[in-house]
Design a protein around this nucleic acid. Structure first.
Lengths: 152, 152
DNA sequence: CGCCATTGGTCAAATAAAGTCAAATTTCAA
DNA sequence: TTGAAATTTGACTTTATTTGACCAATGGCG
């Protein structure tokens, strides 16, 4: 097996153990596998690229690191699914439940969830009488999710 | 974790506990972390700079100190101001203008602005007839901004 | 008033990582 | 077998951190 593949396996293992985030030191890893440090960059750019569903962050200098985060490949589809599951109208309680589920599945950030909750609250939609209110709420819910999908 | 980061954490903690103001003695801190005193200056200038929303004051000589004050006034007050400027109703164009201004002033992130635009669009509020629509829009606009303020 | 001990400030050098890129090498499929 | 693609390596670049030597302000004391 090629060295690149071994390193890939190793990083996968780290990701498994740490629930989707692996933080490593490049020279450390290079030492462990007796290879050039840039080999690590090669592995990352060929196996853990963004288009493969990973987020890469790093810092140089003392205490530097490379952090690889697996981004829920299904985030997009979870959001899509939510959009499609909501019909013409939805009440506040159901919208909140949807939101909580998406947050729990990491398909929404804490802030995104908060904003979605705010927008679909009865408080925010107080001026609109029923049954128009639930129709508007469904509309807003979908619009927000679609905006998030669009930007992801 | 790098020493700079640990010191940063420590200062953050102080800021938390003292509600936004931390007063410290440079050599003291340096002693606590076994580092050169100038390390403290480094941390302050890279992590607590004015452009990051902090005010730094200091005094040399006997009883000298360095005081770090968090100033969240700008973003927060910009958003507050926007909330207070919007009346009972607002049309889509005005809401978009407000949003663009806040984005430009860095009081909103790109995503926050996108979501705000989506929520206040005529498209999202299509089910609601005028003049109720503009009233609802104002309500939503404020709710979203207040949610952002609350979380900041 | 003028010294001087006590602080904090500045800056540049040394050190510690990570990034880039292209040449050299290996692997693999036609 | 051979040529393209993948891998491996290393020289050079960029960025971040750490340290230390030297400078500047402040307050107390004689």
């Amino acid at each position: 097996m090629a060295l690149s593949d071994e390193i890939t396996l190793f990083i996968r293992e780290l990701l498994q153990q740490s629930d989707g985030v692996a933080e490593l030191q490049r020279s450390d890893l290079a030492g462990r596998f007796h290879c050039a440090p840039s080999q690590i960059n090669y592995v990352i750019s060929t196996r853990f690229a963004p288009e493969q569903g990973y987020l890469i962050e790093s810092r140089r200098g003392g205490g530097g690191y490379i952090r690889i985060t697996r981004i829920q490949a299904s985030t997009r589809s979870l959001l899509m699914h939510a959009v499609n599951s909501v019909g013409q109208h939805i009440d506040a309680r159901s919208a909140a439940a949807f939101t909580a589920n998406l947050l729990h599945a990491d398909a929404l950030s804490g802030e995104q969830a908060s904003l979605l909750l705010a927008v679909t609250s009865d408080n925010a939609l107080r001026p609109v009488p029923q049954p128009l209110r639930d129709i508007t709420r469904a509309n807003l819910f979908k619009h927000v999710l679609l905006t998030i999908i669009e930007r992801s």
